[in-house]
Write a protein that binds this DNA or RNA. Sequence first.
DNA 1: GGGTATACGGAGGCGGTCTCCGAGTAGGTG
DNA 2: CACCTACTCGGAGACCGCCTCCGTATACCC
Lengths: 191, 191
Amino acid sequence: METVQRPMRADARRNYERLLTAAHAAFAEQGTEASLEEVARTAGVGIGTLYRHFPTRRALLEAVLHDSLAGLDTRARELLGSGSPGEALLEWTRHLMAHVTVYRGLAATLMSSFDDPASELYGACERVRVGGDALLASAQRAGAVRDDVTGADLTKLVNAVAWAGEHCDDDTAERLLTLVMDGLRAGNRRS
Amino acid sequence: METVQRPMRADARRNYERLLTAAHAAFAEQGTEASLEEVARTAGVGIGTLYRHFPTRRALLEAVLHDSLAGLDTRARELLGSGSPGEALLEWTRHLMAHVTVYRGLAATLMSSFDDPASELYGACERVRVGGDALLASAQRAGAVRDDVTGADLTKLVNAVAWAGEHCDDDTAERLLTLVMDGLRAGNRRS
DNA sequence: GGGTATACGGAGGCGGTCTCCGAGTAGGTG
DNA sequence: CACCTACTCGGAGACCGCCTCCGTATACCC
């Protein structure tokens, strides 16, 4: 099962790195739907090379975002031990928002990967949800959040707000997040 | 200012109607990003004809949705007079959800038209927001909803939930809407 | 029936996705 | 150091969708 794979050839590694850099620039400027041909052009690499390294747009996104999303997981663990569980959860959702809004269109990509194990981003989504789950459970035990909310609900709601934020100014996005998070507090259940 | 325009030629009107029918079918089946060339093919009409009648995808969507969105406005006025303002608002948001989810991708289109007066759908969004404003104000006067929520907030939140619902089963979408609407009740303000 | 304003249709330019395979090269081997 | 081979590169090309433009067709008015 454990296939020993020799290290990448020097040219392959160089092109891989160049593609990551170019992809980040393109996504940052034009959103996750940026032209992959232009990414390849910017990287000074043939389109075939791009597709060999990253068979799908999501594979490329995953590579570009890998560290950033992993950081979110670490942050969740840090926050777990610190102060009020309610505040910790709130703080973490702000981090989540920040990560999800680095590229226009990212919220949509993540959302569609969330329940799709075939997506290259599924693993990343999974890790995010696990981190959120822990913080959420902690906040619920502390009676800060209504207990019928799941980690998936939380992540999806934040994602949805982040998506909405792509079409508003930052203040409005912040307002919407506040409205939603206030609303998840314990004691707000109606039905 | 008031340019008198003679009625459409018979062939033009026929093609217009065919295009509406074909567009509805295509949007229903493949979402708002359905191929316009296929719409034209289905309608038995040249692609040039489609673009003459509907210069943009949004213009076509506006025509297809016109009656439906107008109905939403009427419904808002009906609900204004009926029973509990809180319940009326809740009922209306469910209608809004239903209208926004008729086509996959519609939430995104509406969201991007919401603050863009140049969009062919801006007027429709405007009318929806006005309807929602009235119901919201009524619910706020009755003390059922926190008073720092605006009509735009409400519409955007429902849109965001509808968008999220495109990636979940119906139950989850319903849950998310409940979580958000519960959260908007008066007394839930934190900051 | 004839003339004209109106409408039709699709060819064609553009730009994007993705595949496939001949040419090029890195790096281990003798 | 030179060679060989497995690995990698690059871009042509098939396909698709958007949108424009203009020669052709036709509905309607007189």
